[in-house]
Design a binder for these strands. Structure first.
Lengths: 347, 347
DNA sequence: CTGAAAGCGCTAACAA
DNA sequence: TTGTTAGCGCTTTCAG
């Protein structure tokens, strides 16, 4: 018999006006102390719980922000969400989560739904680099922060890891271990994560005077199966290409690649060296020697939160074209050594 | 200049009533085809997007469900959320995610916030087995489904893995590999996940005529660090206890335990056999031989979603005391073998 | 088929 | 300090 207690109901019971009840319950307004106490008593007695839906409607602000991403079961995304959620919760904002399963159509569909719900901001790890899916938010001036992939939109706010640095670190690591023929498995030809990670790889090779063998560059789609397939393709042409190391640029593709290597009867690092990406669980405990590049997720989530809070407080909505690149780490086998290629860059 | 288009605005522009516009835009209502077309045109022209906040207020249903859990960066929870989200999204429901960082105080605080937002249902992986934190929902008759830990409340709806079966499978696996002295690291003395996992361990030992050595039972708090510490304690008394295998009952504690074992200069399974819990990433690719018990997360998420959908559709709110236990798996080293101890049990 | 009116629960002027 | 009124944007009777 609870849950239907409203300001109106309390007001009626007490024979006073709704607005007085409202004021009494909102610390900021001025009411006679005595009235406030009585109202609070009654509110408790009737099990009154404010209805935020009504409040949202009237204030045209839902104190809710949306996070749209390709796969929450990727540790990378889960950790970003965790970092973000922590900051936002402290300020009374809650998070709506939407998992697109890497599908651009779902992405825009979900974003449309979220806009209808009038979330106050959108955090988007897009799989559609045109950035078109974010249109409803962009047009209405609702804050949007892109993480992971960078959209074509010049004025967009972006906070991501420095992908070029990440690949440079990974490649240099392998070069300095004596490898000359280094294969790479990328997640996308069109998304900036893929483009930049390739770029860093190229730069590192050029810098050390190595040729880039296009045969050593394979593509997947960030999912495990594609890492497995890409690795198999690389292994098939290993005779001609003679690579001795491989760099895989996403968590799940790394798992897939490792499986392919094992199935081929090869060992890591005995037969083939490998540098993975975002292998966090192994990182913490290192049950084996996997070297991995990692992104500072909690930091990304936190930065996104702070940026958003600023945007939301200052009412100066709209994109400002902020680009923030955070530094990746590399975790090298058993040694919990961290190499910072660059410090965070802000523009 | 967008984003402020409302039914009222369109109605004014067209010189018709708000209700007609509303009807025209809601497929179900009856309007002259011609009117509908014109309205739809105008709506598009003015960039009208329905305001779900207003709709929610009027329908007193937000089409939103809340998920409150201890740690979204645990693969176990992330996958449940993914499974659940998938089902709910297909029916127009969105998910609000709250991460309590295993803190009971945050848990009840968040649940309070969520109730104010009038989410239509709550999915709760509680760390407070009294179930008291869910009170606002329970009292108001809003559907609540518990996952993971089972609360004291008898009438509560619960969908979890069969923890006793999980431990039995794990322990039997080690017994059949010839181990007699098997240590176990549990996550909690008070939560049902801990209690039941201990129970399964005990039952398996009894069944094979082994004594239970209380010295071989250690407790952590599900976090990595505690797994590390618990393992260290076990190793310190290894001389007296002479255990040859250990069973660790959560993902992160497993990582911690492995680290402790490695730091002690021991190898798995050379010096010590280990069965872990929820080690999914390793499961998919198996970079090494870790045997692990796993829970069917996607299935749990899906079941939760289906139950909720049913509850929400049929308006017969309130707890019905449904208890559903899904079967765990065991993944045994390199072999992708699955042992089903039991089939899903429904009560 | 369409309009007028009421109301979801709350806040916020504006008076009193 | 308190009450009255209006309205956030929408749906839904109830008349017409």
């Amino acid at each position: 018999m609870k849950g239907n207690s409203t300001l109106k109901y309390i007001a009626q019971q007490m024979g006073i006006s709704v607005s007085t009840v409202s004021r009494a319950l909102n610390e900021k307004s001025v009411v006679k102390e005595e009235t406030r106490k009585k109202v609070q008593e009654m509110a408790k007695k009737y099990g009154y719980v404010p209805n935020e839906v009504a409040r949202s409607l009237q204030k045209s602000s839902t104190e809710t922000i949306a996070v749209v991403l390709p796969d929450i079961s990727e540790t990378f995304f889960a950790r970003i969400v965790k970092g973000l959620e922590n900051v936002m919760m402290q300020h009374g904002y809650m998070i709506i989560l939407a998992d697109t399963r890497e599908r651009a159509d779902k992405e825009s569909q979900y974003i449309e739904m979220l806009y209808r719900r009038r979330v106050d901001a959108l955090v988007l790890a897009t799989v559609d680099c045109s950035g078109a899916s974010a249109t409803p938010f962009l047009e209405s001036g609702t804050p949007v922060v892109f993480i992971d992939n960078i959209p074509d939109i010049v004025s967009a706010d972006v906070i991501t890891v420095d992908n070029i640095a990440a690949s440079k670190v990974a490649t240099k690591y392998l070069l300095s271990a004596g490898h000359r023929k280094i294969a790479v498995i990328l997640g996308s030809k069109t998304e900036t994560t893929g483009i930049e990670r390739l770029e860093g790889y190229r730069q590192a090779l050029y810098a050390s005077g190595e040729e880039v063998d296009e045969e050593l560059i394979e593509y997947g789609d960030y999912k495990m199966e594609s890492g497995y397939e890409a690795m198999k393709r690389l292994l098939e042409k290993r005779r001609e290409t003679a690579f001795s190391a491989v760099y895989v640029t996403s968590e799940k593709m790394t798992y897939g690649a490792i499986r392919a290597i094992r199935e081929a009867g090869l060992t890591i690092p005995g037969d083939l060296s490998l540098v993975g990406f975002d292998i966090h669980n192994l990182m913490d405990d290192r049950p084996q020697m996997i070297t991995t590049v990692c992104q500072p997720e909690e930091a990304i989530g936190k930065k996104v939160g702070e940026l958003l809070l600023d945007r939301l407080k200052n009412e100066e909505n709209g994109q400002k074209g902020i680009k923030m690149r955070l530094s990746p780490f590399i975790y090298e086998g058993d040694t919990v050594k961290r190499i910072h290629e660059t410090e965070s860059k802000y523009c």
